[in-house]
Simulated assay, not measured.
Amino acid sequence: MKLTINQKIKVNSLKNLIIQHPDYLHALETIEEAYLLKEQGDLPQSFLCIGQSGTGKSTLKSTMSKLYPRKSDGEREIIPVLTLDTPSQPTIKGFAEEMLIHLGDPLPHKGTQINMTNRILKLIKSCGVKLMIFDELQHFIENRKDPSKPSDVADWFKTLIEKSKVSVVLMGLERSHQIIDSNEQLRRRFSKTIDLRPFNLFDNNMRNSFLGILRKLDEEVGLPTRIDLTDKSLVKSIYFATNGIIDYMVKLFIGAYELALLNGEKYLSKDCFKSAFVNRIWNKGLGKLNPFEDDFVQERLDKVGMPFHLSKNAYSERISL
């Protein structure tokens, strides 16, 4: 049995679903405020947005680009929000080229460091940039012998930010704090931090948000029968299968939905979730390592080789609900 065209379209729509939970809305409001303060009051803001992969940083970035899209006034391109991923191995020239490309410079690879920097600053002004969002900040410290020491590219980047006189949001994984901590001026400028944390089922303040997202995902799937969110065992299994990370929650539900459609089921069964975990999240998640098996180890899957290795959590590994 295969999915119909309409079913495939529905599955694809779920991939683009944005769940507007409280932490996401707070982060979006803060970023938009930084944009508006520069646009309306010439008061540029700077802050750091930190979170594990899959917690919503890329979604925030794309949402801001959609809220304030590029446009042309006939003579030039207006770029209210400039978004850029830090190159995987950043150098001053490589970073400058990337910025010039995104700013529409006709010869982004040409010029000396000073010339390229001056062109970047000129284009930021002429293109009406109000907010710059730089993602993957951790690339500044990866592949370096001593991440605690400042680098030339970080110093250049800091100077560029200061001279741009626009609002700036730096995004990255938790270890991105190292690049800020290693530079006093950056530390002072980016003292404000937004932390996009995974949901924690065992934190009373976050539990309702986690359950609310499960409810929203189930509603968006739209099968005739809802999953039972009073089933503590099922809810805990979903939590361990996703580590509370929203991107994995969406992937798990999409995988379970596809299997339910193929099997002609009227709701997302435990067996659907069990197979979806293997297909969508961890292909080695079998037997005791599958949260939907009765003999699951009841531990977070964050050891070396597991899907959530390096995911931080302040709570103990063995937890009862």
Score class of each variant (00 low, 15 high):
7 Q>R: 09
136 E>L: 06
43 L>M: 11
197 R>Y: 08
236 K>G: 04
175 R>W: 07
183 N>P: 06
236 K>E: 15
207 R>H: 10
291 P>W: 04
102 H>P: 00
157 F>H: 02
5 I>P: 03
174 E>D: 08
63 T>S: 10
132 M>W: 04
135 D>H: 06
203 D>G: 01
234 L>D: 07
274 K>N: 08
149 K>R: 11
308 F>N: 00
317 E>M: 10
173 L>M: 15
180 I>E: 02
114 I>G: 08
309 H>P: 04
57 K>T: 01
319 I>K: 08
90 P>E: 03
257 Y>H: 08
48 L>Q: 02
215 R>P: 06
195 D>I: 11
218 D>E: 09
294 D>S: 13
76 R>F: 14
111 G>H: 07
209 S>R: 00
145 K>M: 10
59 T>C: 10
27 A>L: 00
88 S>I: 14
298 Q>R: 14
243 N>I: 00
138 Q>A: 08
67 L>F: 09
23 D>P: 02
249 M>S: 07
159 T>K: 14
261 L>H: 09
140 F>H: 01
315 Y>S: 14
99 M>D: 01
296 F>S: 01
111 G>E: 07
220 E>K: 15
247 D>V: 04
6 N>W: 07
316 S>R: 12
207 R>T: 08
315 Y>G: 06
74 G>D: 12
291 P>E: 06
11 V>M: 14
153 V>G: 04
302 D>F: 05
18 I>Y: 04
176 S>Q: 03
66 K>G: 09
173 L>T: 13
28 L>W: 04
152 D>N: 13
189 R>I: 04
108 P>G: 12
256 A>G: 10
103 L>E: 00
276 A>N: 03
313 N>S: 11
192 K>V: 09
96 A>W: 02
198 P>V: 02
307 P>F: 05
161 I>G: 00
94 G>E: 06
297 V>F: 04
113 Q>P: 01
187 R>K: 14
225 T>Y: 13
311 S>W: 05
154 A>N: 04
129 V>Q: 03
280 R>P: 02
292 F>Q: 01
26 H>P: 00
83 T>K: 08
279 N>M: 10
122 K>T: 14
287 G>T: 07
17 L>V: 12
166 V>M: 04
99 M>F: 14
321 L>Q: 09
258 E>P: 05
251 K>S: 08
102 H>L: 11
106 P>N: 09
88 S>A: 14
210 F>A: 04
220 E>P: 02
243 N>Y: 12
137 L>E: 00
141 I>F: 01
199 F>C: 03
121 L>W: 02
160 L>H: 01
39 E>G: 03
89 Q>P: 01
12 N>V: 09
145 K>G: 10
180 I>H: 00
293 E>R: 09
225 T>W: 11
238 I>G: 00
190 F>L: 04
298 Q>S: 13
305 G>K: 10
66 K>M: 11
227 I>N: 03
98 E>F: 07
161 I>A: 05
21 H>K: 07
19 I>F: 07
301 L>F: 05
49 C>I: 12
133 I>T: 03
162 E>H: 12
310 L>S: 15
98 E>L: 15
38 K>A: 05
70 R>I: 11
226 R>A: 14
256 A>L: 07
205 N>R: 13
104 G>A: 07
128 G>Y: 01
94 G>Q: 07
